[in-house]
């Protein structure tokens, strides 16, 4: 069987810390423990409402006040945590990862082929087939691909791509990874 390795696009890219942190934040908000934070915040809102209802159920009861106050505080904190603190925490984690790495800041050369993409830098070469990609997130600034045995987050920056290249790559990713592709 002949593999058609048609080259879709070829370009260079280099990530700065804020670019990587933003991409990592987008990935982190979609998957794992931080996903569906809206639902979790809503659940704690409901819990807070139930605590208030139970408190006032038998006309106001002073004995229940301390326990209710503690539970309400916990609910309020968790709502704030999921809605405001989690995105900030994930972005900060992305910054820490970038700072801990000597590879992420290196210039990279990207080649997008029909069946796979390749990334080359001074110290690393990566070839990833689209069948190994579990998720593909497109933002205004980059493409974020997650896959491989190590669940690696590969960020492909768009800033050095031409408009035609962006359109070609977007169309190609949508076509090759219809289930994994998501536009943020």
């Amino acid at each position: 069987m002949i593999m058609d390795n048609t080259l879709i696009a070829e370009f260079d890219g280099k990530l700065k810390i804020q670019e990587y942190a933003y991409a990592y934040q987008q990935y982190g908000l979609q998957y794992g423990a931080s996903s569906q934070r809206g639902v979790k915040a809503a659940a704690f809102s409901v819990a807070a409402a139930m605590v208030l209802y139970a408190l006032f159920m038998e006309h106001f009861n002073f004995e229940r006040l301390p326990a209710a106050a503690v539970l309400l505080l916990i609910c309020m904190y968790m709502i704030t945590y999921y809605l405001y603190l989690v995105p900030k925490k994930i972005r900060l984690h992305g910054e820490h990862i970038y700072k801990s790495s000597r590879l992420l800041s290196k210039p990279k050369h990207f080649q997008i082929y029909r069946d796979f993409f390749e990334m080359h830098s001074e110290y690393e070469s990566l070839k990833r087939f689209y069948t190994d990609i579990s998720d593909c997130i497109e933002t205004d600034a980059d493409y974020i691909l997650i896959g491989g045995t190590e669940h690696r987050v590969t960020v492909i920056p768009k800033k050095t791509m031409s408009e035609q290249q962006k359109q070609d790559v977007t169309r190609h990713f949508r076509q090759e990874m219809p289930k994994q592709y998501k536009r943020m």
Partner: peptide, 13 residues
């Protein structure tokens, strides 16, 4: 199969 890495130890975290 799909990846190669060659880095100095000082670049390891």
């Amino acid at each position: 199969e799909n990846r190669s890495l060659h880095i100095p130890y000082r670049y390891l975290y």
